[in-house]
Design a binder for these strands. Structure first.
Lengths: 361, 361
DNA sequence: TTGTAGGCGTTATCAA
DNA sequence: TTGATAACGCCTACAA
């Protein structure tokens, strides 16, 4: 805080004790837009640029005194390392990409938040991009992003297994909600939640179920169907799959007729959005829920609780999925062992108002 | 598609007609991880690297024939420019940052989507980060991101005017939902929507209103309050402001008691989330909505329509806000005139079920 | 522990 | 129109 009066010191002779920056240096930095480089620090601290580089990037491999002097100089110049300049020799941008099918789908909020926080915690930056449910857009976006990120997280990807393996061969990839051999993935324990759901429906008295599938290309939709099939067989319930459906509220709205046509007493939708749409259409047509039709969804999305009746759903740990995907990616990048990559994320049934006993039982 | 049989041509002599790559070159590229550089293209096309650079970055300033040859070579090597390498001399990363207070707040979905699409359309990458409603985190994130982006969009920022001006002085900044002199911003036409809302409430018979404010630091909350004040004065209605409240469902839940204590017949919440929380708390306490209390929110967030009763709200063009913020930023970067930056985004009242005539009128 | 020198892939300046 | 050549800011052998 003590300011040295101008002119009392020779500005040309930098004195490490004074909190003042030689005019010439200051001028040079100013002209450069205020951004100091390691050369400036080196000059101010009276060492070589490489020493500065070492001090800043791998602390400890340098004499404590020198390091302190360098840190001091760096902060006096409010130095911020230039990520691009660092990325050039290292090939590392400290950036991760997260690709989602639809940014406005509430399912991704949790994933994005978890991933962003975990990335920031590790000093990484997260780029979020949207494929709009299109494999083509996704492929394009992926290859556009690839050169500038160190790794990619594919959430609910619409790519083919081969396409995924191909990009995984060029850059580290972690999948969320999709399994492909040889590629890391973060998966929910679908079986558990589905079993809970079907037990619930069975206990209510339902014996026939219709599964309203998501997009044809959706791997999760397939998984959920398989699980439902297993569970319903075990319980001796009838089940049919109809679809595919766009995984949006609109998609759900358009599917009511086919659902009713199945004469099932309960409908399980691929996700909450579809379930909500289905319920809205039902309300409009005077179909009582859950009296005439029980409805359940997946994901425990924001809004499923607000809906009336509120939506019974199989929730999973979205935020956790995002966090773990980043951790797995960083572990790969660091050459570390990939943690519990194969461990499934917990999943659980959340019973709300959209499921109840079938009227005619 | 016609493949030249191996060995029929001298691999050392690249022939532009053949779709084949000299072994030595291919080998070098392979060793580098498959990523070709402009040097590789230069070699393959028989020109100098600088010519390649020109051909690829500013098409037209080169002979058509040479350019074609270069493009051909580039695609044969499936060349992708290295963004970091380009960023070094130009100082441009082709990346924009979008800072939001809370990623899981549905208000931001639209903004993020609009911004992401507009950015992608212009060949830019969008980085999304969250400040978690904290000015400190926001300042830190901003300065962390600053060196690696060409511009920053601050949506619902929690920074002080001075802090904003300071960062705007170092890097292009566009504000969404916040006005600060000398800084570009994208703003909604608050007055219009608020006037519509108060006219609606007045017509229903309400004469006393309570405004449940958002965070103290929220500029929008202040703007909304000012507007409400203006409109209610004009209509001769009583109005009081209470708060501040966390702009979440939980925040709204906790505010019911104070709202009821005001004895107003209608509550206007800072945003839909607060309105929803308020309504949930009311339902739990048996307070009938809209019979005993009318409730309205802002933003027309996903979920406000699902809630029951569904929420009357003042909606604004979120996606449009994101798009325009990016456009303004890019215009600044390009030195172009900033378009309709001062033009306000439309805002409109969406009447739903949470507002109705007060019971005792 | 520190400094020297060369390279990362691109753009930009200046000649040719 | 094209080609050398020198940045851009940092990292990293290698040498001292």
């Amino acid at each position: 805080m003590a300011r040295v009066p101008m002119g009392e010191v020779q500005p040309s002779e930098p004195s490490p004790e004074a909190s003042e920056i030689p005019g010439e240096l200051a001028e040079r930095i100013r002209r450069r837009g205020g951004r100091a480089t390691i050369y400036d620090i080196a000059e101010l601290a009276g060492v070589s640029p490489s020493t500065v580089s070492r001090a800043l990037s791998k602390p400890g491999r340098i004499s404590a005194k020198t390091e302190a002097r360098i840190r001091d100089a760096a902060s006096r110049l409010s130095f911020r390392i230039n990520p691009m300049a660092r990325a050039l020799p290292t090939g590392r941008s400290q950036t991760l990409a997260l690709l989602v099918a639809d940014i406005t789908n509430p399912v991704v909020f949790g994933i994005v938040r978890g991933a962003e926080h975990e990335a920031a915690r590790a000093g990484y930056t997260l780029v979020v991009a949207e494929s709009q449910e299109s494999g083509e857009t996704e492929a394009e976006t992926t290859s556009r992003l690839m050169p500038s990120v160190d790794g990619i997280i594919l959430a609910s990807t619409r790519l083919s297994d081969d396409a995924i393996r191909l990009t995984a061969a060029r850059t580290p990839v972690v999948l969320i909600n999709r399994a492909v051999s040889e590629v890391d993935s973060v998966l929910p324990d679908v079986e558990k939640g589905v079993a809970e759901l079907l037990n619930h429906l069975h206990a209510l008295g339902h014996r026939s179920i219709v599964y309203l599938a998501g997009p044809q290309i959706s791997w999760v939709s397939g998984r959920r169907w398989e699980s439902l099939l297993d569970s319903s067989e075990a319980l001796g319930m009838a089940i049919v799959e109809i679809g595919p459906t766009t995984p949006t509220i609109d998609g759900g709205r358009g599917a009511l007729r086919r659902v009713l046509a199945s004469k099932s007493t309960a409908a399980v939708a691929f996700n909450d959005l579809i379930a909500i749409g289905l319920m809205q259409a039902a309300a409009r047509q005077g179909v009582e829920i859950p009296g005439e039709l029980s409805v359940a969804g997946f994901d425990n999305v924001f809004g499923s609780e607000l809906m009336c009746p509120s939506v019974t759903t199989v929730g999973s740990e979205l935020e956790q999925a995002g966090r773990r995907a980043v951790r797995v990616l960083l572990a790969r990048l660091g050459g570390d062992d990939v943690e519990d990559a194969s461990e499934l994320l917990d999943t659980e049934l959340i019973v709300r108002e959209s499921t109840g006993p079938p009227r005619d039982v």
